[in-house]
């Protein structure tokens, strides 16, 4: 066990876990989207889980730093919140805010983060960009909604865990980046049918079975 101080509160954490996990385990919420408990090398891609650690010049991603004894962490500084709010606004500027018809409604981490950071789900500051078409239904069992997806990559991670070689990947570059299915020719086979782990893990229901598309 290690002991660290978060926001002036001393907490205990298991050896070797990240600052993010340590905080979450102790009921201290840090907004995060791409981290899965126990990940050995997290993607550090959502850029939400910033904290300030004494001795570090700039805010750091808490999922990428191991908790150590005596570490002094702040999760709520102005700089941290500034970065989190900007990151969130950026994510929302490409998100189709249609909560009423979205199967993730009420269990969506984006809704939770909006409340937590006190940022509206429709920040007007940035221009809205939505992809067209708004659904990719190439997969025989699964539909993908790029305008819900925030590219956390959890689906690819679990797919790799289950099948070794993932059947999905990031595709295209830059702003056009999406999740895309590839791999075996026939994706309707038992591997996909019996697994569907990607659907269970998707926090924003950007990946759903065809019949689940609208609840």
């Amino acid at each position: 066990m290690v002991r660290l101080v978060v926001n002036d509160l001393e907490i205990e954490a298991e050896d070797g876990i990240s600052v993010l996990e340590a905080c979450l385990n102790n009921g201290i919420y840090i907004p995060n989207l791409c981290f899965i408990n126990g990940m050995s090398s997290p993607p550090v891609s959502c850029r939400m889980c910033f904290v300030e650690i004494e001795g570090e010049a700039r805010p750091v991603s808490s999922c990428a730093v191991k908790a150590t004894d005596g570490m002094k962490v702040r999760t709520d500084t102005e700089q941290v919140r500034g970065l989190q709010r900007t990151a969130f606004q950026l994510l929302m500027s490409v998100h189709d805010v249609d909560c009423g018809r979205c199967p993730a409604n009420k269990r969506c981490p984006l809704q939770r983060i909006a409340v937590f950071l006190k940022v509206p789900l429709r920040p007007g500051r940035l221009e809205k960009h939505l992809k067209n078409p708004d659904v990719d239904n190439v997969h025989p069992l699964i539909d993908y909604y790029p305008n819900r997806c925030m590219l956390c990559g959890k689906c690819i991670f679990v797919c790799r865990e289950k099948h070794g070689q993932p059947r999905m990947t990031f595709a295209k570059r830059g702003f056009e980046t999406v999740i895309s299915f590839y791999g075996e020719k026939d994706l309707s086979g038992p591997a996909c049918k019996e697994c569907l782990a990607c659907i269970d893990i998707c926090p924003v229901r950007a990946i759903v079975t065809k019949d689940q598309a609208v609840e």
Binding site: P43, S45, C46, L90, S93, V94, L151, G174, F175, T177
Partner: peptide
């Protein structure tokens, strides 16, 4: 840079697009 961004992290992927806009 917008075109060459790998698309992994939020700031670079979406932020540079808004700069470009």
């Amino acid at each position: 840079t917008q075109k060459e961004s790998c698309g992994k992290c939020t700031f670079c992927r979406i932020g540079t697009r808004h700069l470009l806009d």
